[in-house]
Amino acid sequence: MTAGPTLSLEQIQGLVRRAQQGDNAAFEQLVELYKTKIYNYALRMLGDPDTAEDVAQETFIKAYSSLSSFRGAAAFQTWLYRIASNLAIDTVRRRKYRQNTFSLDEPIETSDGPIERDIEDDAAGPERRFESAQLQQQVSQAIVQLSPKLRTVLVLYELQGLSYDEIAGIVGAPLGTVKSRLFNAREQLKKILVDEVDVETFR
């Protein structure tokens, strides 16, 4: 889970007010506070670091342009996530991010070149297996196979650690819908991962 801002709510509100009055240094502090959260959210939504960085940057630029319309009724964080969520979903749709189905036989593309998938045997400890880059990649690939709505709720809840209420505010859906989507997301993710990897071996 991403570490949250170390400033108090009042301090963050103060930064927002200053930024609204044209203080760019205050806005810069807000970017510093939230950049890792927003970037990770975009990364898990899109599965691609470069696109995630673009979407995260665009989120802050949009937020800056819309600062005057932020009234503080919602937490600044919720507001930022809402912008990021809209941008990420737009990106998914615009670029027609197809479900990234993959085969365990396919090599994984990394910055250091393609590497072969190496599914470790059961003799290895579960912690070690889980920490492997290959598995992280597989989970990441599985997440982007979910529909954008399910993906949004899953990432916000499981990875970003937001509450149901916050997520409901971000996606603009009732609490029950959020819970239902989370359940469906987990269920679908389970199916995807069980098809590709025996999920039980990672417990």
């Binding site: 670091p49 598995l135 997440i143 993710l189």
Partner: peptide, 10 residues
């Protein structure tokens, strides 16, 4: 599994 995923920095 999802919760244990890495949280890289930009």
């Amino acid at each position: 599994m999802v919760r244990s995923m890495a949280q890289p920095k930009p």
